[in-house]
Amino acid sequence: MTTTIAETTDDTVIVPKPNMLLRALMAVPPALWTLLVLISIWELSVQIGKVPAYILPAPSAIGAVFFNYWHRLLPNALVTLSEVLIGFIGAVVVGVPLAVMIVYSRAMEKAVYPLIVASQTVPKVAIAPLLLTWFGYGMTPKIVIVILLAFFPIVINSVMGLKSSSREMIYLARSMGASGLQTFWKFRLPQALPSIFAGLKLATVLSVIGAVVAEFIGADKGLGYLILIAGANFDITRQFASIILITLIGVLFFVTLEQMERFFIPWKARSNIAGEG
C-alpha cells in the first residue's frame, strides 16, 4: 500500500505520505488520546503500586466487571436512562410553554416568574425524601426530581431567548401585517432557539444528577441503587463500573443535544465552523 507523491493532488510540500494506520490514528479526537493516557497512568500505578481493589480498582478490573456483570448493569442502566429521559421531556413539555406564557402575559410574569426564581433556593435534594413519601418507591419520585431540577434552566433560558427579539424586529413583523402567531413562529421562536438550546443542554446534566441522587435516597433499581448496593458490599469495582455508565449516559445525552442544536440552528453551526477555520 504505497502511494507515490505524484498521485496525491493536495500535497504541495514534498513529504513522504504517512501510511494508512498513522492517518487513522491522527483522525481520533485529541480528547480521547488524553483519556487514554490518563487511563494508562491509572492502570500502571495500580499495577506497580499493588493498590488493593477495595481502595482503587485497575481500569482492566473495571473492564472485566463490565464483561461479567452486564446482565445486572444493563437493566439498571436502562431504568436510570428512562428516568432521565422521561423527566427531561417532562421538564421541556412544562418549561417551554410556561416560558411562552410568562413572556406573553404580564400577569404571569408578575405572578409566577418571581416564584419560579425564588423556588430555586429550595434544595431539591432535601425534598426528595418527601417525594418518596408522596409517590412511593418506584420511578415516579425520581422523574419528579429530574423535572424539578431540569425545569429551571429550561424556563429561564427560554424566557431570556423569547425576550431577546429586538424592538425593530417586532416592528418589521408588524409592518408586514404579521399576526401574533406568525410573529411567534417566524420571528420570536427562531430568535430564541440558541438560548433555549443552551437551557436544554444545562438541563441534560442536571437530569442525570437528579435521577442518580433520587435513586440514592430510595430505590430498588437503577445505577444509583447499584452504587449503594456495591458500596454496602465493599465492591468498589462495581461502583466504578456504575459511575462510568452514568457518565456515559450523561455524555451521550449531551452530545445528542448538541447534534440536535446543529440541526435546528444551522446558521450558528456554520458561523462557528467559519470561526474555527
Binding site: S166, M169, Y171, M176, G177, A178, P190, Q191, L193, W267
Partner: peptide, 25 residues
C-alpha cells in the same frame, strides 16, 4: 419599509430574508 438598521433575521439566508415578506403576506 427599509429601516435604519437592516433588521435581517440571522437564521435566514439572504433569499429567505427577502421571502419572509411573501410568507407573511
Amino acid at each position: 419599509i427599509v429601516f435604519q438598521q437592516d433588521v435581517l433575521l440571522e437564521w435566514r439566508s439572504a433569499l429567505q430574508n427577502i421571502m419572509i415578506q411573501a410568507e407573511i403576506r
